[in-house]
Design a protein around this nucleic acid. Structure first.
Lengths: 156, 156
DNA sequence: CAAAAAATGAAATACCTTGATCAGTTCGAT
DNA sequence: ATCGAACTGATCAAGGTATTTCATTTTTTG
């Protein structure tokens, strides 16, 4: 099997197409990218094997399931000890309302995107979960007024 | 057809399962959520029709396609005129490296998540695209050191 | 330039999936 | 308690799909 150290134009088209619509059949995909279904199948397998192509997921409308409010929350930690960091990052994984968490450069240690039903829910989450966590020193919350863009498709 | 003003436990399980794995067949899904394939199919159609269940997309490993660096960029606008805002938000849609954009409360107008290959690429993007835009007054960039969590699955 | 390796397209098959039908059942309203 | 609407599970036909094989073409390597 070829070693995927770089992608050709067909690979790029496959990645673009599947990022947009994971439900495309190999036949439909083949027509779109200009290759045969068999070739597409082999390329997809190679891309999956190389860890480039990840899982297929279904997107859900946040507002319609009562998660219409996004809050960006910056956190500063009390300590930067490895053990505390690991414990905190493990805690992050367990909280479903935390969609993303990045470790940041600058004066704040982490930036979280939290989805909640309303402001009251966020207040509760902030007070009881985040600020109550022993490793957290301070938090600054910024509410999203609207979502101008949201995509999972990387530019390829 | 039933009016989806609320979901029962089976709907919740379906949404959770499809958020995790969009490639599940109706048969596999049925077994997982404890219903018949036919019932799953009808519920999925209803959820799609109600706009709850969105598209199936394939996730791609950002680092492996040369987009391993995420930067959070806060922007302040020169003006808040409707026309300028609309024009800027349309511009946002055209730039593939901008994954998310939220209109924010607080002292910054927008928060963007930008994915680039490296710091040099970001510098170029910031200078030539964002700061060069006529509606943008100022920007503050924060680099993500690592991605602690990233999910598309809302808590349901 | 020649040989080897790798990728390609076409074809074929067995499987699986979707989506519809129908009789029975649950649930809510009166 | 009774009626009716809505939902359910089982079944099934038609169609499409994934995956393999093989001969051919393209690319790489020596």
């Amino acid at each position: 099997m070829k070693y995927l150290d770089q992608f050709d134009e067909i690979d790029h088209r496959i990645l673009r197409a599947l990022q947009r619509d994971a439900s495309l059949s190999h036949a439909a995909l083949a027509e779109e990218v200009g290759a045969s279904p068999a070739s597409c199948w082999r390329r997809i397998k190679a891309l999956e094997g190389a860890g480039v192509l990840g899982p297929a997921v279904r997107l859900v409308n946040a507002a319609k399931v009562g998660r219409g409010v996004s809050v960006m929350c910056q956190l500063r930690m009390k300590t930067h000890a490895t053990k505390d960091r690991q414990e905190f990052e493990a805690f992050i994984q367990t909280r479903g309302e935390i969609m993303d968490c990045h470790s940041m450069s600058g004066e704040w240690d982490y930036l979280l995107r939290v989805v909640v039903a309303d402001v009251a829910s966020y207040e509760r989450f902030l007070m009881r979960e985040l600020l109550a966590h022993p490793a957290v020193a301070a938090a600054a919350s910024h509410f999203a007024l609207s979502q101008v863009k949201y995509t999972t498709a990387l530019p390829i």
